[in-house]
Structures are given as structure tokens and as C-alpha cells.
Amino acid sequence: MASDSRRELILAAMIRVVGSKGYKETSVADVIDEAPTSRTTFYKYFDDKHDCFLAAYDMLVEQVFAEVLANCDGNQPWLQRVENGLSTIVKLFALDPELARTAVVEVAAAGADARQRHWNAVARFTAYLEDGRELADGRELPENISLMSAGAVSGLGLDELLAGRAAQLQAMLPDLLFAMLVPYIGPRAAAEEMRRVAAIR
């Protein structure tokens, strides 16, 4: 087996184990069992659990990103693009609750550097919202508007994941969409988008 794919197997195992047991409760032995691999191989690639988690988190973020970009045509209007992006993430998380818990909940327990990675990932997604300013008809919107939008969406998502209801995220897509759009286009237009998406699903 090529060494890169062996490393990726370990990273994927880390994401699954942390998502089901929790970061604090996860041991290197758990990850070795799940991969499966040997202790020697694990320590060839990683210093310890934390080192491996950070690499796993980086991989997770890149995977989610690749998926989102694959589903977002850059030529589509802003509204369509961000709707597609959001529904891609929601679907990904709903279908893989362990990945979702690792990405959003457990990362907080993995130290300040892990939390920083989470913030960086959110900022990368948030940057895509910035073009929504064009819909404001020349009105001055707050500098922080994309952060408001992201905070509203991730708060709703976090509550569902903390309650162990990852599958429920799909059903919440209309609400999540409203939360993302409303700072830009207001409640009436956002509610219209919400109803449109609810009708398609």
C-alpha cells in the first residue's frame, strides 16, 4: 500500500473515532484498531494523538471544501451559489454524523490550535458570502455581515449536533438558508427562498 494512502486511512479513522467517542475519550489505540494499522506505522506518521487529529482535521476541511466547490458553479448568481454550498455541507453532515461531530463539536475539545483551525475553516466559507453585498441596492451593509450570517447558521447547526440530531440537519435546511440570507436580503425575500427550497425537497 502506498504510504500516503496508509496515512489517509489513519486520518479517516481518527475522524470516525473522535466523532463517535469524543476527542477526550479517544486513544491512539482506538485509532489503530479502527484504521486498522500498527503502532509502529501510526508513530511513523504522527507524534501523538493531537498531532494526528490536527492532520485529520486539515484533511476533513479540504474534503468538505472540495465537495462544496464541486457543487457550486462559479457562474451562477450569488443566491444559487450560496444555496448550493450550504445544502452540500448540510447533506454531507447529515449523511456522516461522525464527521459532522468531529468537524463542529469535538474540535473545540482538541486544544487552542484545533479551535484556530475551525475558525479558519469557517472564515474560508464565510468569504464566499461577501458577494451578497451586491444585492443591497447600494445600501451600506455592516462590515461584519458575513460573520453574522455564518454565526446564525452555525449556531443552529451546533445545537442539532450537540443534541445528537445530525440527521435532522437536512430537515432544517430551509431554516438554515433563511438564517444565511436574511442579513443580506431581509425576512420577506429570505422566507420566499425558504419556501421555494422546502417545496423542492
Binding site: 450570517s149 455564518a150 449556531g155 438564517a179
Partner: peptide, 23 residues
């Protein structure tokens, strides 16, 4: 038209506020 807003509207606003402060 506030009555017809999504049930989660206050949670959204709270999330936005908390996100700005945390940042």
C-alpha cells in the same frame, strides 16, 4: 409580519450576536 417568521428566528439572531462577540 413578524408572526410568520421561522420558529428559529431568535436562535439565528442570538447565534449571529454570539459569533460576532466570540470572533
Amino acid at each position: 409580519g413578524g408572526r410568520s417568521l421561522p420558529a428559529n428566528t431568535s436562535r439565528m439572531a442570538i447565534g449571529a450576536v454570539a459569533g460576532l462577540i466570540a470572533d
